[in-house]
Amino acid sequence: MTLTISPQARDALEDWLAARRAVEGSADATVNAYRRDVADFIAFMTGHRADPQGLAALMRVETRDMRAWMARLRSGEVGARSVARKLSAVKAFYRWLAEREGVEPTAVLSARAPRFQKKLPRPMAEEAAREMIGTVELQAREEWIALRDVAVVTLLYGCGLRVSEALGLTGADLPLAEALRIRGKGGKERVVPLLPIARTAVERYAAACPHPAAPNAPLFRGQRGGPLNPRLVQKACERARMQLGLPATATPHAFRHSFATHLLASGGDLRAIQELLGHASLSTTQAYTGVDGAHLMRVYEAAHPKAR
C-alpha cells in the first residue's frame, strides 16, 4: 500500500478489519474495499492536516475536515453512490475506534452522505427471460460449454441466485437434491428450492462436462478446467441479448431481479421472497424488486395475521 499512513493508524485499521472478519464474517472483497476506503481517508487527512495520522490525530478530526474530504472526492468525479459507500466505511471504523480507543466520533458520524438515486437492474419480461436462456445456448461452439452457460443462467432465474453463488457450487452439491444450500454474502446460508428445470439443466451439463466433478472442485468449469470466470457468463448473455434485440439491462444479474419480480407479480409472499434472495432486511427486498408502497402494503395486509 503506497498511501501515507502512520504505523499506529495502519495497525488500528488492520485490527478493525480482522474484527469484521471474525465477528461479522465479512467477505474478502468487502474487507478489501473497506481497507481501500478507510486508508484513502486517513491518507487524505495526513495531507490535509499536514501531520502523520496516528491515533491521536484521528481523534482530532473535525466537521470541516470531513467536508474537505468529501469535497475532494466529488471534485475527483467520484459519484454520490461511491462517496456514500466510502463514508459508511469510515463511520464504521470510527464506531469501532470509539468503543476500543475512546475516540470521539461525533464529527465523523454526523457527516451526511450525498443523496443518490438507487439504480436497480430492470427485470426482463417472462418471455424475454425464457428467450434469453434459449439463446444463450446458441452462443458456444462446444456443446458442454453451451450446456454450462444454460445451467448457470437457469439457476439465476429459477432460483434467484447471484452469479457468485451459482459459481460457488462444487462437485459436493451433486447429485442434486430438491433444494440447494447456498452460502451468500457475509457467509449467510439459506436453502433454495430447486425447480425440476434447473435440476435438469445442471445434470445435463454435469454429464457432458469433460472435467471430473470432484467434491472440492468448482461445479462450473472454464474450458481448461479452472473455475468459470463470471465474465464469460456476462459475455454469453451480452451476445444473446444483442441477438434478441434486448436492452443492455438484460444482464446475468437481471435474471435474479426477474426471479423476484415475477414471483411477486404472481402473488408471492414478500417475506418468502426475502428468504429466497438471502436479504437481511425486508426493506432491501422491497427496493430490489421495485415494489411501490401501495403494493407492499397490500402484500403485507394480506399476509400478516394481525392485519386480517
Rank of each mutant, 00 (worst) to 15 (best):
V152D: 07
L73E: 09
H279Q: 10
A129T: 02
A287N: 08
R112T: 14
F93R: 02
L246Y: 07
A287Y: 05
A125C: 07
K188Y: 06
V291I: 15
A22W: 08
R20S: 08
V31R: 03
A303K: 13
Y288I: 02
L97H: 03
Q139G: 06
A128F: 04
L17T: 01
R239Y: 05
A177R: 15
L167I: 11
P230M: 10
S266H: 05
S26K: 14
G225N: 09
R221M: 13
E203Q: 14
L180C: 04
W16I: 11
Q243G: 06
S6V: 09
R221F: 13
A71H: 10
G267S: 06
E275P: 00
Q234G: 15
A214G: 13
L276V: 00
L264G: 04
Q234V: 02
L296D: 05
P121V: 13
P247A: 08
M124C: 05
Q286C: 10
K86H: 13
I5H: 00
L167S: 06
L58R: 01
R100Y: 07
T285E: 03
L73S: 06
L277E: 01
E142A: 13
R36L: 14
V150P: 00
V136P: 02
G160E: 02
M124D: 07
T63I: 11
R100W: 11
G76C: 01
I145A: 03
W96L: 07
T46P: 00
S26L: 14
H211Q: 10
R190A: 00
M132E: 01
Y300D: 12
Q234S: 10
R148S: 01
P305K: 08
A201M: 07
I273C: 05
M297G: 05
A214P: 07
R95I: 11
A240P: 08
T30R: 04
R199Q: 13
T251G: 08
L120D: 10
F259L: 01
R74I: 03
I5S: 02
A12C: 08
T284Y: 00
L169D: 09
R112D: 11
R72P: 04
L270S: 05
T46H: 08
A207R: 15
Y288F: 09
V78Y: 02
D37I: 06
K235G: 04
G290S: 01
H262M: 10
L147K: 03
H295L: 13
T289S: 15
A265P: 07
